[in-house]
Design a protein around this nucleic acid. Structure first.
Lengths: 127, 127
DNA sequence: TATATTTTGCAAGTCATTTGCAAATTTCGC
DNA sequence: GCGAAATTTGCAAATGACTTGCAAAATATA
């Protein structure tokens, strides 16, 4: 594995929340070209090491966010005030998704879910 | 209501699946500028008449899709082969979302869900 | 270690969407 | 209805997230 790919995977693995390409580009601005970061993300996602989803927020615009893919499947909450993520834990929707797909005759291969609102910390601060 | 806004709302209301800005721009290319379509979409969503979500597909790239917002809340399936949507019906996740938000102390104001895979028609055709 | 393969940096391109501004349309008070 | 005031539109240029071509650099393979 090349240095760029290792850096990207390490950062995302260590992060406690989903990271965007922009965040990674900023972090590695001295060491890697943005194109390299994007290519590393594609490589790692294709390889199955990463998962991603697209989210729009007023602060950062529309970006794709990446998390490690460790077999499990987690969902996230995005705070509209501090623009940070809260882990919602492992996916609890599988039963419902199975049910819906059977009803409609679909072959569901993946699903995307996220919630938005105000996180605990921001609410405690009065937002 | 201006003509552009009426056209946009009418198209989305009549459509059986979510429509993208691009589809609306193509449809009204003779009558309205893309900027007007985008502004109409923003106006109608702000006003509460439309709902939207961002979805990436291999055929059309990353686009925002719009549906009418009639109080109810529906979710959609996107076929990776024919790139059309299937209605999954009214949201069935509210209980689970409430449960997760209570557990984490969050104020959830909205959530986004969609599933992808192969639709009934494409599967019947052997894809 | 030499060679073949893959990856990287750079620069330029793409594409959905946004924005400034003057002209056109719509809304309001009468 | 009518004209001034407020809003919206079209056009053209800008933005911003990503993508791509290509030659040089790094990595893998023999």
């Amino acid at each position: 594995m090349t240095k760029a790919r290792m850096h990207v995977l390490e950062s995302i693995s260590r992060a406690k929340e989903p990271l965007s390409a922009r965040q990674l580009c900023e972090r590695y601005a001295q060491e890697h070209d943005p194109a390299t970061i994007y290519r590393a993300l594609h490589y790692l996602e294709e390889k199955g090491s990463l998962d991603s989803f697209i989210l729009h927020c007023s602060e950062h615009g529309t970006e794709r966010y990446y998390v490690v893919h460790a077999g499990e499947h987690r969902h996230w909450f995005h705070c509209e005030h501090c623009h940070r993520f809260t882990d919602l834990g492992l996916c609890r929707f599988d039963t419902l998704v199975d049910q819906m797909s059977k009803e409609k005759g679909l072959s569901v291969t993946s699903h995307t879910f996220y919630a938005t609102g105000i996180c605990k910390e921001c609410r405690d601060k009065g937002f």
